[in-house]
């Protein structure tokens, strides 16, 4: 069992010298690894580690009926499973508000950036393709938001696309799911008055406010402030700048992993 418990006092003491518990500076990511295609039964899959946080995302593409307001395109459906295998802070049972928030924030970033070409998911008037993205926490050490987004994007970018023949789904000789863009997200937490990028589990436990910003090269695509605290406009400015700055690193990690 791996346990590390730190006090707020200790974090404050360290941050006075500009260092975090693991000797990172405030705006540095932990080591990132991305591995794709590790679950070949899924149309697309990826395993991402962010320090000691590990998540696995899987994509399945299935036939469904078109939504009334979007009769000519398919959809993406994102879920996050905060499995109790990943931490003793997760309980078995139906999705918690925390899990639902994570899945919706990740979903918005992907949707708003038009990552998946949903028009290409149209089959006929009655049928469209739906891309299901399921994100599993395997080991929790903070920042499931960014790890989950990386895994979802890497899985989508390498996802296959079944065929629809004679009213049946055929999962042989599959093509590729059509992807328009790559989006990423940067999550910040304020701990003892300091804004920290990519908070680990201990830092999340002591943070009173959190912000996730999803973006692509040009636009901010989704934002979510979480927890009871607040930010000043100046702090928001700083985090947006930092996000555009850091997302280049994240995009290149993904591109490297998907062989682009």
């Amino acid at each position: 069992m791996y346990t590390k418990i730190i006090t707020e006092e200790y974090i404050r003491e360290r941050l006075k010298n500009g260092l975090r518990d693991d000797s990172r500076s405030p705006f540095t990511y932990r080591n990132i690894t991305i591995k794709t295609g590790n679950m070949p039964n899924a149309e697309g899959s990826a395993e991402v580690t962010l320090g000691n946080t590990t998540v696995i995302a899987g994509v399945k593409v299935d036939v469904g009926t078109p939504l009334k307001d979007k009769p000519e395109e398919g959809s993406i459906i994102t879920s996050a499973e905060l499995s109790p295998m990943a931490s003793d802070k997760y309980e078995p049972g139906p999705p918690t508000p925390e899990a639902i928030e994570i899945s919706r924030v990740i979903d918005r970033g992907i949707r708003a950036a038009n990552v998946v070409d949903t028009k290409s998911l149209y089959i006929n008037e009655e049928k469209v393709w739906n891309a299901y993205i399921d994100i599993y926490a395997v080991n929790y050490d903070g920042n499931i938001f960014d790890a989950g987004t990386l895994a979802a994007i890497a899985a989508l970018s390498t996802s296959k696309m079944p065929r629809f023949e004679d009213e049946k789904v055929v999962r042989e000789n599959m093509g590729k799911l059509k992807i328009n863009a790559i989006s990423t997200s940067c999550t910040f937490a304020k701990v003892a008055g300091h804004i920290l990028l990519d908070p680990d589990g201990n830092e999340e436990a002591f943070s009173n406010v959190r912000l996730t910003i999803a973006n692509d090269e040009k636009y901010i695509r989704a934002m979510q402030k979480g927890l009871g605290g607040s930010f000043t406009p100046k702090e928001l400015d700083q985090m947006i700048d930092m996000t555009f700055n850091k997302s280049a690193e994240l995009r290149s990690s993904i591109k490297h992993a998907i062989g682009d």
């Binding site: 069992m1 791996y2 346990t3 590390k4 418990i5 730190i6 006090t7 006092e9 200790y10 003491e13 518990d21």
Partner: peptide, 10 residues
């Protein structure tokens, strides 16, 4: 014990 950090060793 004020401040500091705790680690778990088997």
């Amino acid at each position: 014990l004020g401040g500091g950090k705790v680690v778990y060793i088997k």
